[in-house]
Each structure stands twice: as C-alpha cells, then as structure tokens.
Design a protein around this nucleic acid. Structure first.
Lengths: 252, 252
DNA sequence: TGATGTGAATGAGTTCACAGCC
DNA sequence: GGCTGTGAACTCATTCACATCA
C-alpha cells in the first residue's frame, strides 16, 4: 500500500521539507514586491519580516534550495525570484480547470493571483446547462459533459473543485480518470483519490472554527483565572502569525 | 461504572495541541454526517476513515479532550458531537463581519457552512458606496464608514477580510481597533496585528503553487528511476523543458 | 473479545548559536 | 564587521504497540 519511494539519493538532494515548500510561495510574493520596487538585494532579516517568518527559518529554508546568498551581503532579489519560481515549477505553464462556477468558482476565475504565477485557467466547467456559454471572467463556461475532452485537449493536470459537497467526489473521480493528478478542493468533504494524486483542501468553515476555539479560550482566560493547570503564560498563544497552516496534502 | 473513576477532565487539560485543534472540525463534520444518519456509535477506525486520518491519530486527538469512548465499543456519536462542539466553542453564537464584498465575499456570505456551525454573519461591509444597501445573500451591504459601529453594536470578535490586498492592512487595523480579536484573511498579504490577535490566512494562489511543486516533481520522476507503483496517466506534461527557459514568470 | 487510551519510540520542524566566508 | 549557511539542541507531531477495561 505505502509507496516506499522515499529514497531520493539521486542527483541533488531534492528532499525539500513540506513545510518549506509551503513557505516558498510566501517568500516569492515578498520578493516579487521587492523586485517591483527595484530593490537589488535583501537580507534574510528583511525578507523574513516581509514574509512574516523568522530569519533563521528563512535561511534554513533557502539552504534546502542551495546557496543562493552572499555572506555579508544578502540575497540577490531577481536571482532568488527565479530560483524559487523554478523550484515551484512556476516557470512553466500550468493549465487548470475550475469546476463549479458558483460565487466561489467565479471568485477563483477572477482571481488575478493565478495568471500572474504561471497558472492559466484553461476552462470553467459547470453542471448547470443554463450557465453554458455564459462568460465568467471573460471565459465562457462549458458544460460538465465536456470535462474529459477539455482535460485531454488542454493537457490539464491540475483541477480546482468548487462544487457543492455532494458533487465533489464524482467530479473528482472524473477529473482523475481524465488525467488530472493534482486537485485543489474547496468543497467541504473528504475526497478519496488513487495513489499518486495529490489533494489539497481549503475549507472556509474549518478556519473559522479554529479561530473560534482560540477566541473562546481568550474569553475564558479573562475570567476563569482559577485553573491551576493553566501555565498562566500565554503558551504559544496569541499570535499565530502568517503561519499556522496544516499540511493538507494527502498523498494517497 | 462501579468504579468511581469518573472522567471529567474536559475543561482541565488546556494543552490541546494546535494540530489537534485543526482536526477537530474535520471530526465534527464526519460525526455530524453520522448523526444525521442516526448512527449511534462509531469506532475510531470508522470515524478516522470518514475524516481521512489514521485511527491512532484520532484516538490520540480525542485523548486530549478526555475519555469519551467506551472500550470494546467505540464512541457515542451524539455525545462526541456535543463535546467537540463545546471544545471548539461552537455552542455559542459567533457574530462575524465580512469586509470586501466582491465575488469572494459574496461566496462567503452565501456559504452555508457558517450558519450551521454557530457563525452568524452580522454584517457585510464594502468600501464601494454603490454597493451600500444592495442585498447579498439576503443581507444588505453596509459602507465601510459604519465598520466601527457595526462591530460594537453586534459585539463582533471575528472578522473576515476579503478585500483586495492593498486595502487589507488598513481594514485589519480598523477591525482590531474596534475590538475584533480574530481575523480570517483571504487577501494575499501579510497582516501585522498586535499581540493577542489571531490571524489565519487562506491563500488561494499559494495552495496552487504547492500543488505545482508536487506536480512538477511527479513529471520529473516519470523519466527518473521508475518505481512502477504510480501508473500515472499521461498527464499533460506539455512543457518539459526544465532548463534553458528564461523566467517567463513575473514582470521583471 | 474488541475496542479505547496512552507511554514510548520515532520523525518532522523550529530555533539556537556560531563557524565560515565576503 | 556583517550576514549567510548549517550542525546541534529542542520542541512539536505522528505512529507504534500494548496495557486496560467495558
């Protein structure tokens, strides 16, 4: 069952930790902003502040990519932008399809952050025949019937599911059968996929529930100061920072 | 229950790991589905499968909440639903405001998953005067000018930011100044907040970039040492040129 | 018997602190 | 002097395996 291909002693040490991968886009964004302001170099301290992490972590992260900095100076912004882009695979074109063009699907279609990072919305797909042909974000919506053909014609390997929960697994199955190997799931349901397919999920209500947990705890601490078990100190508490992401990749 | 060993440590151990907290909503959803099908009890194995985690992890997670299961039997569904809801603070009402009513804000306003879990959309707020009064998801949009008053009047402690990146920090500052202590940020920017304020972020493009990283690696492995475990349908590995290409990403 | 609950072992990720180089 | 790069220490999370108990 378990794919034991953990061994990767091949050429370079391509063992970038998942937590690091998850932060690369963050660094990339900060670097892009610097690049636009024509800042030539940046120190780990400055860049870390811009990205909302601490500098030791950032340096460690970069060390997995290689030695791209200059001691005593810092990092060359343009060079680093290129290296991170390449590492993330953003130097190539990734056609994606978005399935389920409700409010959320439309928001995704309109989201500028995709196109500017190598992602091209190859098609919008919806099950509602009334939607077919209607343009959203300048792209005509196509009917679910065409899903397989669209995937094939465009060589799509990344699919975004923004359907209601009830339809998600079925859509997922069809995407996978048609050749999609990475799925970003916005539907509040657990998707089952075959081995070799990555799923990441974004769950709006889960995020709120996590906030509610912390919020409740804050409220409780104000009054219920009597619990001896509570170490009084704000144990890792308050500021989650820009971090706080839980690895959601299910390598199945 | 002859032994007087009554387990009631629920509100004692305030040391619930963050990773566990992040999974509680997942369990809650799976349990809610079981509850709706009137399933009385469930084993850690079954529930773990439904939530997409492994059973040892689930049992460990629950052990932080207390001993709510019965050895040899499993967990009482209704009881667990209640305990987890309480732990997450969902047994109380959480008024939230959504700021920035574009496509995404509208999607959030329409998202049913909020209301069903104790979150009440107290107000929708947008900076565009033309939006004011216009109903979205049955709730009239109000102008940013009223932000502080709305927060106060409704006792809002959780705010959702769905504005463009450029406006996010300013909106954040106003929310915090008005009394909000938890923020869910959808804008692609790092927010700076004072101590004691929680920020969680959901970044659409970051998730896609992480997928792209893994997708790229898959494509590279096909040609490398063949494990054979991954059948890998011929996904659109269109752009194979790994090197030589000039950074086609980002304005330079 | 058949499940939970949990110490112990393992692994992943973060932070420290300083050697090494510009 | 200043800043990167990285072993080592440390903290947090997952998994194992089994004692425990209905």
């Amino acid at each position: 069952m378990a794919t034991g291909r953990t061994h990767r002693p091949a050429t370079r040490s391509r063992g970038i930790p998942e937590a690091t991968v998850a932060r690369l886009p963050l660094y990339l964004r900060a670097l892009t902003a610097l690049s636009e302001r024509s800042v030539p170099t940046v120190s780990s301290e400055e860049l870390a502040a811009a990205a909302g992490v601490n500098s030791a972590k950032l340096r460690k992260d970069f060390s997995y990519l290689g030695s791209y900095g200059t001691r005593g100076v810092g990092y060359d912004v343009e060079y680093l932008v290129y290296q991170i882009s390449r590492e993330l695979g953003l130097t190539q074109d990734w056609p994606v399809v978005i399935v389920g063009i409700g409010n959320l699907g439309a928001a995704l279609a309109n989201y500028g952050g995709f196109a500017s990072r190598g992602f091209r919305v190859a098609a919008l797909i919806d099950a509602d025949p009334a939607m077919a042909g209607k343009p959203v974000a300048g792209i005509p919506v196509r009917h679910t019937d065409e899903l397989e053909k669209i995937i094939e014609d465009n060589g799509v390997s990344i699919g975004v599911i923004a359907t209601p929960a009830g339809a998600a697994q079925q859509v997922c199955d069809r995407l996978v059968a048609a050749g999609v190997t990475s799925i970003l799931n916005f539907a509040p349901t657990v998707l089952t996929v075959p081995d070799g397919v990555d799923v990441r999920k974004v769950d709006l209500s889960i995020e709120l529930q996590i906030l509610a947990f912390h919020e409740q705890r804050k409220a409780g601490e104000e009054t219920a100061s009597g619990d001896g078990a509570v170490p009084a100190k704000r144990a890792g508490a308050a500021n989650q920072g820009p971090d706080g992401d839980v690895p959601a990749v299910m390598p199945a």
